[in-house]
Design a protein around this nucleic acid. Structure first.
Lengths: 191, 191
DNA sequence: TATTGCGGAATGAACATTCATTCTATAGAT
DNA sequence: ATCTATAGAATGAATGTTCATTCCGCAATA
């Protein structure tokens, strides 16, 4: 196995185990075992478990950002673009349920709090497109004049919730339903 | 200290420590210490840490259920009742931020998965009023005909999200804003 | 042969839980 | 009223377990 492969293998295994069993149900020894490497080897690629966890998060965040931006056209109406981003996000996480579960775990942990603080201060790349879109909507009068955090809550809150329900098997989402749901979110924020 | 007081003290301390530092940042020894009891004493009241954690959750759930039902009148319109429940829930958690953080931690943990499964099978007392209200809304045509899980997502998703933002200091919620937000949620689910 | 990467046993810290002991409060005896 | 016996509550040091991390000898490669 090459160096790059080994790193990938470790990251992939960590994702699987942590998504399924949580940070504390995924000991380094188990990750090493399932990844087919020695326990010590992980430390050649990641300084500590914390670093591994954070690096993995960053990788996922970047992948999501890239994917939801595909096919995004500034020429469309605010509503159309909102539906585009919302739908793509739901689709991405439905196709990558482990990444979703991982991200959720991350957000609800000490790492998440840290992460949020950084985001509110600096530039949050992850939601940048969304942010710009919502701001444009407020300015043009298409969207209710709420604080940005509230608009995020009204948009992402249901989306996250619905993805979780799908992954847990409570609902079965398909293309039509996804569109209807994102459209309902839009009804919540539109003027 | 009486027996009842001691139990209360242990539960209260567990709530504080776990809300702030997470399940794994709140060792039994620390809980005992801050509660002013011996480490072994906790085990006279709770069989294990797991039981303590679950009992505490149940207590919070019950308190919330009771409080949001106050002043609820079946005579009001579906919309009015929806606003009532949503607003009261936001208010309750704003007034009890530690309970909110605790509940969030609980939901995003192995306990939470277990809990969800039980809920979907049996009678979930916690959201029973909400459930009945939404079902009535669907029947009467006041609410969009979505799967119940989706309606829950559209209603609670933003509410949870917005409470968290308030507690973290991103937004400052007041009576007017709360009403506007819950009203926006209603716009999302109404027909 | 020298160098680099690897594995996995060894280490030590952190924790939940236990249990032998101490304390406390009540009841009965004097 | 005072003293003693007893049950049950409380205690916290000791235990055993579970990890993250380190370390050292081995193997592959150059």
């Amino acid at each position: 196995m090459t160096k790059v492969d080994k790193r990938k293998q470790i990251i992939r295994t960590a994702l699987e185990l942590i998504a399924e069993h949580g940070f504390h149900g995924a000991p380094m020894a188990m990750i090493a075992d399932r990844a087919g490497v020695g326990a010590g080897t992980i430390y050649r690629y990641f300084e500590s478990k914390d670093v591994l966890i954070c690096d993995l998060y960053k990788e996922i965040e970047q992948r999501v950002t890239e994917v939801i931006a595909i096919g995004y056209s500034p020429d469309e109406t605010v509503r159309e673009r909102f539906i585009h981003l919302g739908s793509r996000m739901i689709r991405y996480f439905i196709d990558h349920p482990m990444e979703f579960r991982y991200v959720e775990q991350f957000h609800n942990s000490p790492y998440g709090a840290e992460h949020r603080k950084e985001k509110i201060l600096g530039i949050d790349q992850g939601c940048n497109i969304f942010k710009l879109l919502l701001e444009e909507g407020i300015t043009s009068g298409a969207i209710k004049d709420f604080h940005l955090a509230v608009l995020f809550a009204l948009s992402f809150g249901p989306i996250i919730s619905v993805i979780r329900d799908h992954i847990l098997g409570f609902v079965q989402l398909d293309g039509v339903l996804i569109e209807r749901i994102v459209s309902a979110c839009w009804d919540g924020i539109k003027n």
